[in-house]
């Protein structure tokens, strides 16, 4: 089944075309690698899918349901999760609270999830005290406690230490084994080959290449 279908999506900001007639589909359980230079439209594409930005033209479908007409929170509730490039964590809340806001869960469940991302010792610490990589892992924790079906990852490895990079890759693999569908924005070509099933390359908002990884 097609988990994600993007049909003819265009978005411009002022005079600049951020996305130009983008169309592709992604099978359930597969991971799509999204590559391209700065400003090629990768983050905008994720924003359109999650409705953080409204497209000018086109449709987005998830699990045979049209989602571009829905408000952002409804799309999220369908099981669409996001790892942000920056600012995805609530700094002034504790690690535990960051998870509890994601899903109405008990403390034990949160602890279990934190164990999987190696953060259970920091459960009551303020999220601001975490390192960049730990914050990323916390976002993964949120995705896991929500049991998201479609996960959109915006450069999850950028600026992360060696140790944490390994941890994050481990988590990504685990989620893939669980059959999650993913769209991964990434620069490192070897990592893309390792983690993705297929690749789409964007340039100035247009798809210039679509291929198997």
């Amino acid at each position: 089944m097609m988990a994600v279908e993007v049909k003819g999506v265009s978005k411009h900001f002022g005079g600049v075309k951020a996305l130009d007639n983008v169309s592709f589909s992604l099978r359930q359980g597969k991971t799509l690698g999204l590559v391209g230079g700065n400003g090629s439209g990768k983050t905008t594409l994720l924003n359109v899918i999650t409705k953080m930005v409204v497209s000018n033209k086109g449709e987005v479908w998830f699990n045979d349901e049209r989602i571009d007409t829905m408000p952002a929170y409804k799309i999220a509730r369908l099981g669409v999760g996001r790892i942000f490039q920056t600012g995805g964590i609530f700094n002034n809340m504790t690690v535990l609270e960051n998870l509890l806001v994601a899903a109405n869960a008990e403390r034990e469940e949160a602890e279990a999830v934190l164990r999987e991302v190696d953060l259970h010792e920091k459960i009551d610490d303020k999220a601001a005290t975490l390192s960049g990589g730990q914050m990323r892992l916390l976002e993964f924790g949120r995705v896991m406690i929500r049991n998201d079906e479609l996960i959109l990852l915006d450069e999850p490895f950028a600026g992360v230490s060696e140790a944490n990079t390994k941890k994050i890759e481990r988590v990504v693999r685990k989620l893939q084994k669980q059959g999650k569908t993913m769209i991964l924005i990434e620069h490192d070509s070897r990592r893309i080959k390792r983690l993705c099933d297929k690749i789409i390359e964007l340039e100035k908002g247009k798809i210039i290449r679509e291929a198997k990884a």
């Binding site: 952002a72 999220a76 942000f84 995805g88 809340m93």
Partner: peptide, 24 residues
């Protein structure tokens, strides 16, 4: 309770809260 946590989240970032399924 949960309401308080959601309010805290909304105060910090509404778009991220929305992306977590909160009807802000």
């Amino acid at each position: 309770g949960n309401f308080g946590i959601v309010l805290k989240a909304i105060r910090e970032s509404e778009p991220v809260s929305e992306s977590l399924g909160k009807n802000v």
